[in-house]
Simulated scan of single mutants.
Amino acid sequence: MSSFTIRQLEYFVASVEAGSLTGAAKLCQVSHAGIANGLNELERTVGTQLLVRRKAKGVVPTAAGRAMLPLARNMLRDAAGIDLLGQSGQEELTGELVIGCNLALSPVLIPLIASEFADQHPKVHVVFRERPGAEILQLIREGQVDAGLMLQRQMPNDLEYVSICPVRVKVALAISHPLATRTSISLAELAREPAITPDGPALKAMLSVLEEAGVEPDIRWTLSSPETIRAMVSRGLGYSLLNVFPPISDTGGPAVAAVPVNDQLSGNALVMALPPRRRRISTVEKLSEILHGAEVRALLT
């Protein structure tokens, strides 16, 4: 049997994902020479060239390297699972957990996650990266976060994710709006009202929902901040569609009504996206446990 190591497989996968040995060294937090030596030993052990190294142009996998890549990733995941078993008997988790969170989700999820870890595992240093969805995806691909909290409609095909719970689209209305006291609403009822939309990928997602409901929106403003959108809505300047509405008591922000949509729409969900190479799996599993709790589901559905 070949005597390669998990570390060598990690170097190989990191080199392919980063596209260079320098990038792999940064991801793995080792020297360039350490990456190169590990790859040389791996290729010697398996008896074939896995990467073509081009000076100043990075690396590309050979045919053998492309065939080995999914096998190597699976072995790294299995090794991480063994590590989790080894840590399962520990009374308290430690270390750092870096979480990327979509800006629209962060007002609800970050306070909940922070308080849960503070109560249950205070020795875990939880770091949050609040970014728009596209930037969170980039952080995940680069391995700069241990997990990313996103909506399923934002997820590309090349990233793995864990589905947490369904998310029901709601209409944000000023509390003085005639429809604000309804238990549900059809988007067609808002067809002639001004819409306030997010920008970037979130705009595309909102437009797809409206298109699915057969509504062509009258877009008056396109804004980046969910809190700014909420403030505009609270003044009666238009409606918006947001998947997450933090409780007023949690944010102290302007009051809006969140009325569920009763149109038959394609499903959406909160997901936990994972980088190609998982690290600190025990803390990520704990995060998943928190997210699957009843409190998160109650806030999103």
Rank of each mutant, 00 (worst) to 15 (best):
A174H: 01
A114H: 14
A104N: 02
E130F: 05
E227M: 12
I6K: 06
K123G: 14
I99H: 00
N157T: 12
D158W: 10
S20K: 10
Q144K: 10
L242N: 07
I196D: 02
P198M: 06
M150Y: 02
L27F: 07
S15H: 02
H125I: 12
S163Y: 04
A269K: 01
L237E: 10
I248M: 03
P247L: 04
L187M: 08
I82Q: 08
Q138H: 02
Q8H: 10
I99P: 06
V46P: 04
A202E: 00
P194M: 13
M150L: 10
D158V: 11
E142S: 14
L71I: 14
A18Q: 02
Q29W: 05
F117T: 08
S208V: 11
R77L: 15
Q138S: 06
C101G: 03
L139H: 07
V59D: 01
A191S: 15
M150H: 01
W221N: 11
V256L: 14
P194T: 12
V16G: 00
L27K: 04
A231Q: 06
R220T: 15
I136K: 03
I290D: 04
S234L: 13
A298Q: 14
A18N: 01
D119C: 11
E43H: 13
A36H: 13
G81N: 08
C101M: 09
Y11K: 04
A63M: 14
R280D: 11
T45C: 06
K204E: 11
A255W: 04
D78N: 06
H121D: 13
K57Q: 09
S176D: 12
S163L: 14
M150W: 01
T301Y: 06
L190C: 05
T301C: 10
R278S: 07
S3Q: 07
M1D: 04
E160D: 12
L223D: 10
P201C: 03
A298P: 05
E142M: 08
C165D: 03
G100Y: 05
D158P: 08
K26R: 12
Q49W: 08
Q264C: 07
A258E: 09
V46C: 08
A63C: 12
P178T: 05
G252H: 00
A114G: 13
L103F: 05
Q8K: 05
P226S: 03
M272I: 11
M150C: 04
A14C: 10
S2D: 12
E130N: 11
R66I: 14
V209W: 00
L207T: 15
Q144D: 09
H32Y: 15
Y11R: 02
L203A: 09
R278W: 01
Y161C: 13
I281V: 14
D78F: 13
I290F: 15
A24S: 06
R168M: 09
I164P: 00
L159Q: 03
V60A: 15
L71A: 08
K55E: 10
T48V: 15
